[in-house]
Each structure stands twice: as C-alpha cells, then as structure tokens.
C-alpha cells in the first residue's frame, strides 16, 4: 500500500488507457453500419398526431411523458431533500 504518487499516477493512466480502448472498440461496432433507427422513422410518420413541429418537445411530453414525470419527480425530491437538510440544521442551532 506504500505506492508513491508517481507510481499511482502511472497506474491510473494505464487503467484509463485500457478503458479508452475498450470504449472506442465497443462503441464503434453498433455505430458505423446503422445510422437510421426505425424509431426515428416512426416518429417522422406519426409526429403530426401531437400537433407540434418540435420533435424533441413531442417526444419529451407526448411519447415519453411518463419519463418526464419521473424526471420532474427527481428534481422535486432533490429540492425537498436539500430543504430538509436546511431545516435540520436550523433545529440543531436552536438546541
């Protein structure tokens, strides 16, 4: 466990290099041959049912509104947690 700073840096660099090679090789396989997804074509065919021209907005609030609900709840829970931390600290000062 008595590794010096330089040794540790070299070890980290080697690990990061291995991760980089793995990531580049793993991501290239599905990336090169197939650019168009069938989901994209489906969105292009049916986006008019939502009445909007903004496809990102349509996906966010119509096709995947349940996901957006979860996202809103994540933000709500984060705010609630932070405010609960603030409340706790006020009570601690009173005691």
């Amino acid at each position: 466990m008595k590794a010096s700073g330089l040794q540790k840096n070299i070890l980290t660099m080697a690990l990061l290099l291995i991760i980089a090679v793995l990531l580049i090789n793993g991501l290239r396989l599905e990336h090169e041959d197939k650019r168009e997804s069938s989901l994209h074509e489906y969105y292009l065919e049916t986006y008019e049912d939502a009445g909007s021209v903004n496809l990102v907005e349509t996906i966010l609030l119509n096709y995947r509104a349940y996901d957006t609900f979860g996202e809103v709840m994540v933000l709500y829970i984060a705010v609630a947690g932070i405010l609960i931390l603030g409340e706790e600290e006020k009570e601690g000062e009173k005691r």
Binding site: S37, H40, Y43, V56, L60, D67, L75, I77, V79
Partner: peptide, 17 residues
Amino acid sequence: DPLPHSVMITFIVINLA
C-alpha cells in the same frame, strides 16, 4: 435523430439535481 436529444434533456436535469 431526435430521441437522444430528448433523453439528454432528462439527463441534464438529473445532473443538476
């Protein structure tokens, strides 16, 4: 493809939280 964009809006908000 608009799907990664909408997924990334979700990711940005979760990163903020």
